[in-house]
C-alpha cells in the first residue's frame, strides 16, 4: 500500500510546528541563521533541515497575501533521483509506505547529479557527501504513527494517510476552497506522494512548487521524461 501527504496550504498559518517537529524527531541540529529581512528561516532546505515553511508576500489582484508553503520531499511515485542513482542500496522506495528513502550509501553517488535530477529541488548534500531529505518519518509510519510534521499540525494543513484517501480529501477540499480561491489547484497529484493544494498560482509560493525543468541537468532529461509534465495538464485532472 502506498501512503501520501496532502498539504492544504490554504490552512497553513506558518506556526512552523512541522518544521520543528521534524528536527525534533530526527534529532537534527539547528543551523546558525541571521534575519535576512524575512520571517523565513533557515533560508533554504539543507542537510539538517528537511522541512521548511516558505513564506512570501504577494499582492494578488490588488490584495496583499502572505503565502505559506511547507516545503518537503514529494516522495515521487517514480522518483527521478532514484532513477538517476540506479542504486537501491542508496535510494529506494519503501514497499510498505512509498517513502523514498536515502541511505548512508548516498555518499557513493554523484551528489550533483541527484540534486539536479530532482524537479522540486529537495535533496541536500552533507559535509561528507551524504544526501539527506525528508524520510516520511518512515520509522513512525511503519509503527503506525503519523509523520511528526502531520501529527503536530493544528489546522489540518498537513494530512497523511492512504493515497486514495488523500486524493479524495484533496478533491473535496479543492471543491470547497475554490469558492474562496477560484484559482486553487492541486499540484502534480499523479506523480507525487506529497500532494499540495495552493490557492493561487504555484510559482507565487515557491519556484519549485511544481515540477520544474529549472533544476534539471540536460543530460538527465531522458531519465526524467516521464516525470516532467507542465503542471497545468496535471492540475486539470483534479478540478
Amino acid at each position: 500500500m502506498s501512503k501520501s501527504f496532502f498539504i492544504d496550504t490554504t490552512l497553513c498559518t506558518a506556526c512552523r510546528g512541522c518544521q520543528v517537529a521534524c528536527k525534533q524527531w530526527h534529532a537534527l541540529p539547528a543551523e546558525e541563521t541571521e534575519n535576512r529581512g524575512t520571517y523565513q528561516n533557515p533560508a533554504d532546505l539543507s542537510f539538517d533541515t528537511y522541512k521548511l515553511v516558505r513564506m512570501r508576500e504577494q499582492v494578488i489582484d490588488g490584495k496583499l497575501r502572505w503565502l505559506f508553503f511547507p516545503d518537503q520531499c514529494r516522495h515521487c511515485l517514480e522518483g527521478p533521483c532514484q532513477d538517476v542513482a540506479g542504486e537501491p542500496s542508496a535510494i529506494y522506495t519503501s514497499e510498505s509506505t512509498g517513502a523514498v528513502i536515502y541511505t548512508a550509501n548516498t555518499r557513493q553517488l554523484d551528489a550533483a547529479e541527484i540534486i539536479e535530477a530532482c524537479p522540486y529541488n529537495i535533496p541536500r548534500k552533507g559535509a561528507d557527501g551524504t544526501l539527506a531529505k525528508c524520510d516520511m518519518c518512515n520509522d513512525r509510519v511503519e509503527n503506525g504513527l503519523q509523520p511528526a510534521c502531520v501529527k503536530v499540525c493544528p489546522t489540518g494543513a498537513m494530512n497523511f494517510g492512504e493515497r486514495d484517501d488523500m486524493l479524495a480529501l484533496a478533491q473535496s477540499r479543492l471543491t470547497e476552497v475554490k469558492k474562496k480561491f477560484p484559482k486553487a489547484m492541486i499540484l502534480d497529484p499523479d506523480d507525487v506522494r506529497t500532494i499540495y493544494m495552493v490557492g493561487f498560482e504555484p510559482n507565487l509560493y515557491h519556484e519549485s512548487a511544481v515540477a520544474s525543468a529549472a533544476h534539471f541537468g540536460i543530460t538527465r532529461q531522458a531519465a526524467l521524461r516521464r516525470m516532467f509534465r507542465p503542471f497545468r495538464n496535471i492540475a486539470s485532472q483534479l478540478s
Binding site: 551524504t130 524520510d135 520509522d139
Partner: peptide, 29 residues
C-alpha cells in the same frame, strides 16, 4: 492516533530482504 496500515508491524525495513543496510541517513533504531 494510530493510522491504519495493512500489515504494519515493527518488521519495517527488514522486509526488503536485499541484504544491505537500508537505514536512512542519521538513522534512529
Amino acid at each position: 492516533e494510530f493510522i491504519q496500515i495493512t500489515g504494519a508491524t515493527a518488521a519495517g525495513f527488514a522486509v526488503t530482504g536485499l541484504g544491505f543496510d537500508l537505514s536512512p541517513v542519521k538513522a534512529h533504531a
